[in-house]
């Protein structure tokens, strides 16, 4: 028991609470800087508290490594982490995401052209989107082998349904008046698709694309639990857990967190550019 660390941990907790309370109740609380400052301080405070508790109580690294140990493992093995990142994210998740999104989009276009098909596919798609689809990972690993292709296949299936459902909903999102307007212009199917229904569907499509970013990463990582070459984030997590090298596991989780939020962030950024006109995106124009 090291009391200095424990006292430090307690002090950190009290200090951040005090600072955040001051900022949150001050006049400047609605400024962008405060909105960034408060959660950042909260995060840093939690890390300090975590470090203090682990060091102070002497928690063994096989149960919970300290943030400093995780950071050390992260910086010491950037080459391995990069290799894993490329294998899992770039090859598995990203390629599967692109294929799955494209396939869902095309199927949605077909489904939208036929009322019967749409009314059949929408409930089925909604149902599928709620199922534990990661379960197909062992089957697809059996079919497509251990390398990234099977991971991409899992990702394709996982991202397909949310994007399909959202796109089909989006293509219907125009109101009757807008469609009547197109009819008074005697617009063709493709003209009304490109000029009215696709732009109007964009907020929905991006909603699906954003949900799918997280699913893609989950699918690629979990599929590696069922077999993979000797690299990849899921592979590393399961083997390092077996060796009780938890600092490396946490480093890998850190990579996954960064990759996941960056992926989401990029899609959200593109969304902002494309759907700048939507009420949820308008800012001081």
């Amino acid at each position: 028991m090291n009391w200095n660390w424990l006292i430090g941990a307690g002090t950190a907790l009290v200090a951040i609470s005090y600072v955040n309370l001051q900022v949150a109740n001050s006049d400047g609380r609605d400024q962008p800087i405060s909105r960034l400052f408060v959660p950042t301080v909260f995060g840093i405070g939690l890390l300090l508290f975590w470090e203090g508790i682990v060091q102070g109580m002497g928690v063994p690294g096989v149960i919970l490594p300290a943030p400093s140990a995780i950071w050390a493992a992260f910086t010491a093995s950037t080459d391995i982490l990069w290799l894993d990142f490329v294998q899992t994210f770039v090859k598995g998740a990203l390629s599967g995401y692109i294929i799955g999104a494209a396939a869902a989009f095309l199927v949605a276009l077909v489904a939208d052209a036929s009322d019967f098909l749409r009314r059949g596919l929408l409930p089925v798609g909604n149902f599928m989107a709620a199922l534990p689809i990661v379960g197909i990972a062992p089957i697809l690993v059996m079919w497509f082998g251990f390398d990234w292709q099977s991971k991409a296949a899992v990702v394709v299936v996982m991202v397909f349904f949310p994007i399909l459902v959202n796109t089909v909903e989006g293509l219907r999102a125009t109101d009757r008046m807008q469609r009547d307007l197109m009819q008074t212009y005697a617009a063709s199917y493709w003209q009304s698709l490109f000029k009215l229904r696709l732009p109007a569907a964009m907020p929905f499509i991006f909603n699906g694309l954003k949900i799918a970013t997280t699913l893609a990463l989950i699918g690629a990582i979990v599929a590696e639990f069922f077999g993979s070459p000797i690299r990849g984030m899921g592979f590393r997590i399961s083997t390092e857990v077996g060796r009780l090298a938890l600092d490396m596991v946490w480093a890998e989780i850190l990579v996954a967190a960064i990759a996941g939020s960056a992926f989401y962030g990029i899609v959200a950024l593109i969304e902002r550019r494309v759907t700048f006109w939507h009420p949820s995106q308008r800012r001081g124009r």
């Binding site: 990661v134 970013t213 997280t214 990463l217 989950i218 990582i221 979990v222 639990f225 984030m233 899921g234 997590i237 399961s238 857990v241 938890l246 596991v249 890998e252 989780i253 996954a256 967190a257 996941g260 939020s261 992926f263 989401y264 962030g265």
Partner: peptide, 11 residues
């Protein structure tokens, strides 16, 4: 919500 939390399951 953007983080693949499921990855921590084995740990």
């Amino acid at each position: 919500q953007t983080i693949p939390i499921l990855a921590v399951a084995p740990m």
